[in-house]
Nucleic acid binder design. Structure first.
Lengths: 328, 328
DNA sequence: GAATGATATGAAATCGTTTTCATAGTAAGA
DNA sequence: TCTTACTATGAAAACGATTTCATATCATTC
């Protein structure tokens, strides 16, 4: 492995001059520039990035925290972020928290020990009091998560609006008994529920606790939900599921029990994942424009790294849309 | 930001002693050990990893190259790898090549500039002659890719076997006219086709070039395939698709033309992705045990990093299974 | 022709660790 | 009592780059 010293002696120049060529500094004559490049090429020299980073205190790496990379929403998000980052010469370190608070905390060490220039949190497990102390080690921004207490930049969708337009759509179709599924107690879920409740109460209806379910994530959970719905004394005619996977589960199980969708039960998903178009009936869903979210968040992170003054707590809201298909 | 110097002077000791405590070296008295830990805690000291890496020439990072992270197969694979790596204190750098040779080459620079300790290639775009020169900068292993020319460790499935058991299954069901779809000309596809041809010729049948299709990847491609099959003078009664997505496309299009699956056309997928269970009929498919592949590949990489002598070119074959459902 | 400013280069300090080398004290063995 | 071997510690060198400081040359300008 050759070092800058080898290049310098091969070119008959000092390390400083080689470094200047490497970093496009002014005040290097064309002649020496050529000599340095020639020496570098002949040796196949590549700068050692650990050494560069020790000097510059920059890593050109950004940690992206997600709870489950196997969730298509997250893999699309990370895909968009990686693409944007690569364009700016940055690498993405994938941090898969697996919905584990401890694991999330471990990843913050990356910032503390200067292994990354910043952290984008596409999922948040710990509360703001726990996270806040880490902000002094480098920029942290939230993406698609909304904790009102968090003093950070938050790139996110208007989840209240998402819950609202989805529910409104079902109301407009004439439904009056609308069940509601949510995942964990994250801000995303909580706000989406606020939108649901807003739409329901605007329609002069009383929300029924018996129709509201929590910790619903997978296709299997969706199947379970249908079985529960079926047994309720007063059966809902529609379900707002919060994810296309759950919606798919509900629909499949309903069909197995010879219920018709949407006639007997209308189902609305969330995310517009590939299965939403594949299922029969195709799932009405709410599109998060995943790529936009990822690119926007990464853009802001790159800006902050370039100029830390940009890092002022604020909400950046992105639009959200209803895609009407056949399940409602 | 505090350094080891600060800790040393706070504890009234030398940097060397602090470093020894940090690295669990022998020959440090219990008393000093306590003093160092106390000083570190009080300052909230965290070692600067750039400095550590410059000394050790180790990064504790592994680059994982995939062609498309949004492909569920890859996201599951990366998920498994990340989990295993994290358990050993390593980070995964996500390298999304987007099927671009140039982009793949750029990622090799990570190895050259000592930003990662090794590279796992879950997809390969460039030929071995292009990749080989990089092997002298650090360990490179292939995962789920098989280039006979490549002198590396290859963790992979027996794709010939995969093509064989899938085709055999269709033959056992009585089919004699079996169409075949493949993606690009990668070794995976080529070997799978070898298995198909082996099964077909073993059954004393003559492979028909008109029934073999290339560059078939997406759901839409699958739909297109059905339209083509329908128009053939001699219509196949079964299709081996090479991916669940393609299988889903074929099935959906067939149903739209009022064909029954599997009665009029049997369809077999590959990968056992979530849609395989969701579609009606559920798709018969071939399971790649994604998690096993990822964990095995990462295990080997960690071993190599620990002891480079382990890095001897060889094939590590993992089992492959048929999952019979309703589409055949 | 002297003073000024721009251009060009190198020696040495620096970033924050780990490791080598030197030194010293203590315990064990002859 | 004198080696020998082990334990314990610190000073300083090393890792490989960038940057500061000093210096030298050259072209302008008054």
């Amino acid at each position: 492995m050759y070092t800058i010293k080898d290049v310098a002696s091969k070119a008959g120049l000092s390390q400083a001059t080689v470094s200047r060529v490497l970093n496009n500094h002014p005040y290097v004559s064309e002649e020496k520039k050529r000599a340095v490049h020639k020496a570098m090429d002949e040796l196949g020299y590549v700068p050692n990035s650990s050494a560069q980073r020790l000097r510059n205190l920059k890593t050109k790496k950004i940690a992206v925290l997600v709870s489950r990379i196997i969730n298509p929403f997250f893999s699309h998000l990370v895909d968009a972020m990686e693409k944007r980052a690569a364009g700016a010469g940055f690498q993405v370190i994938l941090c898969n928290t697996r919905i584990d608070k401890e694991k999330e905390l471990e990843y913050f060490q990356l910032l503390k020990s200067k292994q990354v220039d910043g952290i984008i949190m596409a999922s948040v497990e710990n509360s703001w009091e726990v996270i806040e102390p880490y902000t002094k080690y480098g920029p942290i921004i939230y993406c698609n998560e909304y904790d009102p207490a968090a003093q950070v930049i938050r790139v996110r969708l208007d989840q209240i609006e998402g819950g609202y337009i989805g529910t409104k759509h079902l109301l407009d179709k004439g439904h009056r008994k609308i069940a509601y599924c949510q995942g964990n107690d994250s801000s995303v879920s909580t706000n989406r529920r606020k939108g649901y409740l807003k739409a329901v109460t605007e329609a002069s209806l009383t929300p029924q606790p018996a129709w509201m379910f929590k910790n619903i994530f997978t296709i299997e959970d969706g199947r379970e939900i249908f079985r529960k719905l079926k047994e309720l004394p007063e059966t809902p005619t529609a379900v707002f599921t919060g994810s296309d996977e759950v919606a798919a589960g509900v629909i499949k199980e309903a069909q197995q029990h010879a219920w018709r969708v949407p006639e007997d039960l209308a189902v609305i998903g969330f995310d517009d994942q590939p299965i939403a178009e594949l299922l029969d009936p195709q799932i009405t869903t709410i599109n998060q424009f995943t790529t936009d979210i990822g690119v926007t968040a990464m853009n802001i992170m790159l800006e902050i790294i370039h100029d830390p003054a940009v890092n002022k707590p604020q909400d950046i809201l992105l639009p959200i849309h209803l895609i009407e298909r056949q399940s409602t």
